[in-house]
Protein backbone atom coordinates (compact mmCIF):
# COMPACT_ATOMS: atom_id res chain seq x y z
CA UNK A 1 0.00 0.00 0.00
CA UNK A 2 2.99 2.27 0.23
CA UNK A 3 2.89 2.74 -3.56
CA UNK A 4 -0.67 4.11 -3.41
CA UNK A 5 0.18 6.58 -0.66
CA UNK A 6 3.33 7.65 -2.49
CA UNK A 7 1.36 8.18 -5.68
CA UNK A 8 -1.20 10.31 -3.91
CA UNK A 9 1.45 12.42 -2.23
CA UNK A 10 3.20 12.89 -5.58
CA UNK A 11 -0.09 13.90 -7.20
CA UNK A 12 -0.86 16.47 -4.50
CA UNK A 13 2.64 17.91 -4.77
CA UNK A 14 2.34 18.09 -8.57
CA UNK A 15 -0.86 20.09 -8.34
CA UNK A 16 0.61 22.38 -5.68
CA UNK A 17 3.73 23.06 -7.75
CA UNK A 18 1.65 23.65 -10.88
CA UNK A 19 -0.48 26.17 -8.99
CA UNK A 20 2.66 27.93 -7.82
CA UNK A 21 3.82 28.18 -11.46
CA UNK A 22 0.66 30.06 -12.30
CA UNK A 23 0.32 32.34 -9.29
CA UNK A 24 3.91 33.28 -8.49
CA UNK A 25 4.65 36.84 -9.55
CA UNK A 26 8.31 36.39 -10.39
CA UNK A 27 8.89 34.74 -13.82
CA UNK A 28 12.14 33.05 -12.74
CA UNK A 29 10.32 31.53 -9.78
CA UNK A 30 7.65 30.27 -12.19
CA UNK A 31 10.30 28.48 -14.25
CA UNK A 32 11.81 26.87 -11.16
CA UNK A 33 8.40 25.70 -9.96
CA UNK A 34 7.77 24.26 -13.41
CA UNK A 35 11.01 22.26 -13.13
CA UNK A 36 9.77 20.95 -9.77
CA UNK A 37 6.44 20.04 -11.41
CA UNK A 38 8.28 18.07 -14.10
CA UNK A 39 10.25 16.21 -11.44
CA UNK A 40 7.01 15.19 -9.72
CA UNK A 41 5.45 14.14 -13.04
CA UNK A 42 8.53 12.02 -13.71
CA UNK A 43 7.98 10.46 -10.30
CA UNK A 44 4.43 9.61 -11.34
CA UNK A 45 5.76 8.03 -14.55
CA UNK A 46 8.05 5.87 -12.45
CA UNK A 47 5.10 4.85 -10.30
CA UNK A 48 3.44 3.65 -13.53
CA UNK A 49 6.64 1.82 -14.52
CA UNK A 50 7.21 4.07 -17.54
CA UNK A 51 10.90 4.42 -16.84
CA UNK A 52 12.01 5.53 -20.29
CA UNK A 53 9.53 8.40 -20.37
CA UNK A 54 10.45 9.43 -16.85
CA UNK A 55 14.07 9.85 -17.85
CA UNK A 56 13.22 11.51 -21.18
CA UNK A 57 10.89 13.88 -19.35
CA UNK A 58 13.67 14.86 -16.98
CA UNK A 59 16.35 15.23 -19.66
CA UNK A 60 14.31 17.01 -22.31
CA UNK A 61 11.80 19.00 -20.27
CA UNK A 62 13.53 19.78 -17.01
CA UNK A 63 16.98 19.71 -18.56
CA UNK A 64 16.70 21.33 -21.96
CA UNK A 65 13.44 23.22 -22.40
CA UNK A 66 13.44 24.79 -18.96
CA UNK A 67 17.07 25.87 -19.33
CA UNK A 68 16.02 27.53 -22.60
CA UNK A 69 13.20 29.38 -20.80
CA UNK A 70 15.52 30.43 -18.00
CA UNK A 71 18.11 31.55 -20.52
CA UNK A 72 15.60 33.75 -22.33
CA UNK A 73 14.37 35.22 -19.03
CA UNK A 74 17.92 36.09 -18.01
CA UNK A 75 18.75 37.39 -21.49
CA UNK A 76 15.80 39.77 -21.54
CA UNK A 77 16.59 40.75 -17.95
CA UNK A 78 13.02 40.39 -16.77
CA UNK A 79 12.14 40.72 -13.13
CA UNK A 80 9.23 41.48 -10.88
CA UNK A 81 9.12 45.14 -11.87
CA UNK A 82 8.71 44.42 -15.58
CA UNK A 83 5.99 41.84 -14.95
CA UNK A 84 2.70 42.99 -16.51
CA UNK A 85 -0.09 43.47 -14.01
CA UNK A 86 -3.27 41.42 -14.21
CA UNK A 87 -6.45 43.28 -13.27
CA UNK A 88 -8.44 41.87 -10.34
CA UNK A 89 -11.53 41.47 -12.51
CA UNK A 90 -9.71 39.15 -14.88
CA UNK A 91 -8.50 37.07 -11.90
CA UNK A 92 -12.12 36.58 -10.84
CA UNK A 93 -13.36 35.82 -14.34
CA UNK A 94 -10.50 33.42 -15.03
CA UNK A 95 -11.09 31.60 -11.72
CA UNK A 96 -14.76 31.12 -12.55
CA UNK A 97 -13.96 30.01 -16.09
CA UNK A 98 -11.29 27.54 -14.96
CA UNK A 99 -13.55 26.12 -12.25
CA UNK A 100 -16.36 25.68 -14.73
CA UNK A 101 -13.97 23.98 -17.16
CA UNK A 102 -12.94 21.53 -14.43
CA UNK A 103 -16.54 20.77 -13.51
CA UNK A 104 -17.43 20.18 -17.16
CA UNK A 105 -14.47 17.84 -17.60
CA UNK A 106 -15.36 15.85 -14.50
CA UNK A 107 -19.03 15.67 -15.49
CA UNK A 108 -18.05 14.40 -18.91
CA UNK A 109 -15.66 11.81 -17.50
CA UNK A 110 -17.92 10.65 -14.68
CA UNK A 111 -19.94 8.07 -16.59
CA UNK A 112 -17.05 6.42 -18.40
CA UNK A 113 -16.90 2.67 -17.97
CA UNK A 114 -13.47 1.33 -18.73
CA UNK A 115 -13.33 -1.87 -20.71
CA UNK A 116 -11.41 -4.37 -18.70
CA UNK A 117 -8.34 -5.61 -20.50
CA UNK A 118 -6.11 -8.65 -20.09
CA UNK A 119 -3.37 -6.42 -18.74
CA UNK A 120 -5.71 -5.06 -16.12
CA UNK A 121 -5.16 -7.12 -13.05
CA UNK A 122 -1.67 -8.41 -13.58
CA UNK A 123 1.22 -6.59 -12.02
CA UNK A 124 2.48 -3.37 -13.56
CA UNK A 125 3.40 -4.03 -17.16
CA UNK A 126 6.91 -3.91 -18.49
CA UNK A 127 6.15 -2.01 -21.70
CA UNK A 128 7.60 1.22 -20.35
CA UNK A 129 11.09 -0.18 -20.01
CA UNK A 130 13.78 1.09 -22.36
CA UNK A 131 14.24 -2.24 -24.11
CA UNK A 132 10.59 -2.85 -24.98
CA UNK A 133 9.88 0.74 -25.93
CA UNK A 134 13.02 0.88 -28.06
CA UNK A 135 11.90 -2.23 -29.88
CA UNK A 136 8.58 -0.60 -30.73
CA UNK A 137 10.16 2.74 -31.60
CA UNK A 138 12.71 1.34 -34.02
CA UNK A 139 10.45 -1.18 -35.75
CA UNK A 140 6.90 0.09 -35.94
CA UNK A 141 7.57 3.82 -35.59
CA UNK A 142 10.92 4.21 -37.27
CA UNK A 143 9.62 6.50 -40.05
CA UNK A 144 8.03 9.07 -37.68
CA UNK A 145 11.21 8.90 -35.63
CA UNK A 146 13.31 9.86 -38.64
CA UNK A 147 10.84 12.55 -39.66
CA UNK A 148 11.13 14.08 -36.20
CA UNK A 149 14.81 14.70 -36.90
CA UNK A 150 13.79 16.78 -39.92
CA UNK A 151 11.42 18.67 -37.63
CA UNK A 152 14.30 19.41 -35.28
CA UNK A 153 16.53 20.64 -38.09
CA UNK A 154 13.82 22.94 -39.38
CA UNK A 155 13.11 24.22 -35.85
CA UNK A 156 16.80 24.86 -35.32
CA UNK A 157 17.24 26.71 -38.61
CA UNK A 158 14.06 28.68 -37.97
CA UNK A 159 15.14 29.69 -34.48
CA UNK A 160 18.56 30.82 -35.67
CA UNK A 161 17.06 32.78 -38.57
CA UNK A 162 14.48 34.44 -36.34
CA UNK A 163 16.80 35.37 -33.52
CA UNK A 164 19.65 36.57 -35.74
CA UNK A 165 20.16 40.30 -35.62
CA UNK A 166 19.75 42.21 -38.84
CA UNK A 167 22.89 43.80 -40.24
CA UNK A 168 21.77 47.37 -39.75
CA UNK A 169 20.65 46.77 -36.16
CA UNK A 170 24.23 46.17 -35.02
CA UNK A 171 25.46 49.57 -34.02
Amino acid sequence: MIATILTQILGALTVAAALMVVISKHPVRSVLYLVVTFFFISGLYIMMNAQFLAIVNLIVYAGAIMVLFLFVLMLLNLNKESEPKTPTLSWIIASIAAGTLFVVFIAALKDIVLVSQPGDNVALSNIGLVKNLGNTLFTKYVVPFEISSILFISAMVGAILLAKREKQMID
Binding site: V21, V22, L78, P84, I93, A94, S95, A98, L101, F105
Partner: peptide, 18 residues
Protein backbone atom coordinates in the same frame (compact mmCIF):
# COMPACT_ATOMS: atom_id res chain seq x y z
CA UNK B 1 -7.69 17.16 -15.61
CA UNK B 2 -6.60 19.32 -12.70
CA UNK B 3 -3.20 19.98 -14.28
CA UNK B 4 -4.83 20.87 -17.60
CA UNK B 5 -7.25 23.26 -15.90
CA UNK B 6 -4.41 24.91 -13.98
CA UNK B 7 -2.57 25.40 -17.28
CA UNK B 8 -5.67 26.89 -18.89
CA UNK B 9 -6.12 29.15 -15.84
CA UNK B 10 -2.56 30.34 -16.25
CA UNK B 11 -3.13 31.12 -19.91
CA UNK B 12 -6.15 33.18 -18.89
CA UNK B 13 -4.61 35.23 -16.09
CA UNK B 14 -0.97 35.75 -17.02
CA UNK B 15 0.17 38.53 -19.30
CA UNK B 16 3.82 37.53 -19.52
CA UNK B 17 4.40 35.65 -22.77
CA UNK B 18 7.10 33.40 -21.37
Amino acid sequence: TLLFVIGAFGVMIRRNMI
